[in-house]
Computed example of a mutant assay.
Amino acid sequence: MMIAAPASLAIELLLWPVFGASFSTAALGWGAAAGVASAAAFALLYRTLAIGPMSVLSPVTALVSAVLPVGVGLVQGERLSAAGLVGLPLALVAVVLVSAGHRARSVRPSRTALLLTFGAGAAIALQLICLHQAPSDSGLAPLIIGRAVSSVVTLTAAGLLHRRLGPERPAFALSAAAGVLDSLANLCFLLAARSGDLAVVAVITALYPAGTVLLARGVLAERIHRGQLVGLGTAAVAVSFLALT
């Protein structure tokens, strides 16, 4: 996290001339709130990954991160078409099917793991909601401010906890690459949310485990079990319906 957050900030600063940035009061406020939520989301998510089992916790995280923005979008007056009313629940089902591993039924997470999972999902949802609330004409300002805040929070926490970090050196290249990809993902979400409904965009974003499953199959030669195959198919159908909204 110490490496990924500054790497993300560097990418957003490089993209500033391309997309522009308007640092209004609203952009600063919502961007800062998104940054705090982002730092909390990463810390809670990585802690959840360490505790496991992710075969159970991953779909819970994804569901929470999708359901909260859907609720906010509907409260703010977003209305779904008939296709959206079909695609939205299908997408939520797909999130669970794709995320769940083949051992999901045989293991039970601890109470601490479940609390961290809900916290991670809520923090991710808050980050998405804050980015969506930022003015649509603010360009990359919410992302730049948010990443600067999350970098400060992360580095401050690391300074306070430096004695607990251990002597092992982090994987600098992989950590930086993760930060770059996270920055591009947030940019794609911001552009999508500005041109579409938060309820739809957030649910499609929560389908990210599908990409993880496919990459694990292609890169790590992991097996995709039957439930995940059904989930991938359901995801394709759901996205097709949501694209019609």
Rank of each mutant, 00 (worst) to 15 (best):
L114Q: 12
A134T: 08
S110L: 13
T117V: 10
A113D: 02
S110T: 15
L128F: 12
H102G: 04
G101E: 04
V98A: 10
G139K: 15
L116E: 04
P135C: 07
V98M: 09
L88M: 09
A122L: 12
L128Q: 06
A100H: 05
F118W: 11
H102M: 04
V98T: 10
H102V: 12
P89H: 04
S136N: 03
L131C: 01
L92T: 07
Q133D: 02
P109E: 07
S106M: 08
G121W: 09
A100K: 09
V93A: 14
V95F: 05
T117C: 14
L88R: 03
F118P: 02
A123F: 03
R105N: 02
S106E: 15
L114M: 15
S110P: 13
Q127F: 05
S99M: 13
S106H: 14
L88F: 03
A113G: 03
L114Y: 10
G139R: 14
G87S: 11
A100S: 15
L131P: 00
D137W: 01
S138T: 11
A122I: 06
L131Q: 00
R108P: 00
Q127W: 00
L97E: 11
H102C: 02
A125Q: 05
L116A: 05
C130T: 00
G87E: 07
G119I: 12
I129M: 01
I129T: 01
L126Y: 09
A113M: 02
A94E: 07
L115H: 03
L97P: 08
D137H: 07
P135L: 04
T112N: 10
A120D: 15
H132T: 06
L116M: 12
S106V: 02
S99T: 10
L131R: 00
L90F: 04
L88Q: 04
A100C: 09
A104D: 01
V93Q: 00
L126K: 01
A123G: 05
P89C: 08
S110E: 15
R111C: 01
A122V: 03
V95Y: 07
R105V: 09
R108I: 07
A104K: 06
C130I: 00
L92R: 04
V98D: 03
Q133A: 11
V107M: 13
V98W: 06
C130F: 08
G139M: 08
R111I: 11
R103T: 15
D137C: 02
G87H: 10
V93E: 00
L115K: 04
V95M: 14
G87A: 09
S136L: 07
S99L: 13
A94L: 08
A104I: 12
L97D: 08
H132G: 03
V107S: 11
S138I: 11
V96M: 14
A123I: 07
A91E: 02
D137R: 01
F118M: 12
